[in-house]
């Protein structure tokens, strides 16, 4: 997995192999395989834990990341290992923003049927975007529909006094 600085200071944590510290945009790139999703989630959630995000926040983020990256791998890149999924993320004490992009032609999310219609409840697919929208504070697709930005606010009452933030 490539891990790179996008902008600003993206320092190493002082240990080889660890992703950059939080507060700045960082980037990841993985091939189109579902088995690589957990390492992306781990990199982002590990940053969130430093800012005392709640268990509910972490559950929501993991769920939304699962859905966004799996969509990029399966529907965007059609499981083509020669295509990559591009992830940018920024974690602060207040919010997490994650951009997940693929190398496919994109789609129009407004054209998707409502998976909660009674007649569609027994259809196996089509619930990923519904879940992302339910668990994130904001979900925005780019105009071509091959990149989605997820935003989750920190719900923890301790978000301003976590160990990596001021006062300590």
């Amino acid at each position: 997995m490539k891990h790179m600085q996008i902008q600003g200071k993206c320092k190493q944590n002082g240990q080889a192999g660890l992703p950059p510290t939080s507060g700045h945009w960082c980037g990841l790139e993985i091939p189109s395989t579902l088995s690589r999703i957990p390492e992306v989630e781990e990199a982002i959630l590990r940053q969130c834990e430093k800012f005392s995000y709640t268990d509910r926040d972490l559950f929501a983020l993991k769920l939304a990341l699962d859905e966004a990256i799996a969509n990029a791998v399966k529907h965007g890149n059609k499981m083509d290992r020669h295509k990559s999924v591009h992830i940018k993320y920024r974690v602060t004490s207040r919010r997490v923003d994650v951009v997940v992009g693929d190398e496919g032609p994109g789609f129009n999310p407004a054209n998707l049927p409502d998976p909660t219609d009674d007649g569609r409840l027994d259809c196996p697919g089509g619930r990923g975007i519904l879940l992302m929208r339910a668990f994130m504070n904001n979900v925005v697709y780019n105009p071509s529909g091959n990149s989605v930005t997820l935003t989750k606010f920190n719900e923890s009452p301790r978000r301003f006094v976590s160990r990596n933030v001021a006062f300590g």
Binding site: L63, E67, G126
Partner: peptide, 9 residues
């Protein structure tokens, strides 16, 4: 402690 839409499917 975790469930994706693929699991629902």
């Amino acid at each position: 402690d975790h469930l994706s839409s693929a699991a629902l499917g």
